[in-house]
Deep mutational scan, measured.
Amino acid sequence: PDFTLHWNGITIHFKGIDEEQFRHLRELLDRGVSLEELEELAKELIK
C-alpha cells in the first residue's frame, strides 16, 4: 500500500510499505529524526 505523511511542512510519499513499517516511520518522525536519518531509513526500505 501507499502512505502519505505530512511532516514539518514536507509531504512524503511511501510506496509499497506495510502499515507496520509506516507506523515505525511515524514514531521516528514524532521523536525528531533528522532528514539524514530519514534518507538512510528510506535506503534500507528500498533494498
Rank of each mutant, 00 (worst) to 15 (best):
P1W: 15
P1L: 14
P1H: 14
P1V: 15
P1K: 15
P1D: 10
P1M: 15
P1I: 15
P1F: 15
P1Y: 15
D2P: 11
D2Q: 12
D2G: 14
D2N: 12
D2Y: 14
D2L: 13
D2E: 12
D2C: 13
F3L: 04
F3D: 01
F3G: 01
F3I: 03
T4L: 07
T4S: 09
T4Y: 12
T4W: 09
L5G: 00
L5V: 07
H6R: 09
H6M: 12
H6D: 06
H6C: 04
H6W: 05
H6I: 10
W7V: 07
W7A: 07
W7M: 07
W7P: 00
W7H: 08
N8A: 10
G9D: 03
G9I: 01
G9M: 02
G9S: 03
I10Q: 11
I10S: 06
I10N: 07
I10W: 02
T11W: 05
T11S: 08
T11N: 03
T11I: 09
T11H: 14
I12P: 00
I12D: 00
I12G: 01
I12E: 01
I12W: 05
H13M: 12
H13A: 09
F14D: 00
F14C: 02
F14Q: 00
F14T: 01
F14N: 00
K15F: 13
K15V: 13
K15R: 09
K15E: 09
G16A: 04
G16K: 03
G16P: 03
G16V: 05
G16S: 05
G16I: 06
G16C: 06
I17Y: 02
I17C: 02
I17A: 02
I17G: 02
I17F: 04
I17P: 02
I17S: 02
I17D: 02
D18R: 08
D18K: 11
D18M: 05
D18T: 15
E19G: 11
E19L: 12
E19N: 08
E19F: 13
E19W: 12
E19P: 11
E19H: 12
E20P: 03
E20F: 15
E20V: 14
E20R: 13
E20H: 15
E20L: 13
E20G: 12
E20Q: 15
Q21H: 06
Q21F: 12
Q21S: 12
Q21D: 05
Q21K: 09
F22L: 05
F22C: 02
F22S: 01
R23Y: 13
R23F: 12
R23D: 04
R23P: 01
R23N: 08
H24Y: 15
H24P: 01
H24N: 07
H24D: 02
L25I: 07
L25T: 00
L25C: 02
L25D: 00
L25N: 00
L25V: 04
R26S: 06
R26G: 03
R26N: 03
R26Q: 06
R26T: 06
R26H: 04
R26V: 07
E27V: 13
E27N: 15
E27L: 15
L28E: 05
L28Y: 06
L28Q: 06
L28V: 07
L28H: 06
L28D: 01
L28A: 12
L28G: 02
L29W: 11
L29H: 04
L29T: 02
L29A: 11
L29E: 00
L29R: 06
L29V: 07
D30F: 15
D30G: 12
R31E: 07
R31F: 07
R31Q: 10
R31M: 12
G32P: 02
G32K: 03
G32T: 05
V33K: 07
V33G: 13
V33A: 13
S34L: 06
S34F: 07
S34C: 03
S34H: 05
S34M: 05
S34A: 07
L35H: 04
L35G: 03
L35V: 11
L35W: 08
L35E: 02
E36I: 10
E36Y: 13
E36N: 08
E36G: 09
E36V: 10
E37G: 04
E37P: 01
E37K: 10
L38T: 01
L38A: 03
L38G: 00
L38H: 00
E39R: 12
E39K: 11
E39T: 12
E40N: 09
E40A: 12
E40F: 09
L41M: 08
L41R: 05
L41Q: 03
L41A: 09
L41Y: 13
A42Q: 03
A42F: 15
A42W: 13
A42D: 01
A42V: 13
A42I: 14
K43N: 09
K43M: 09
K43I: 10
K43D: 08
E44F: 08
E44G: 08
E44C: 09
E44V: 07
E44T: 09
E44I: 09
L45A: 06
L45Q: 04
L45E: 02
I46H: 08
I46A: 13
I46G: 11
K47C: 13
K47E: 13
K47G: 14
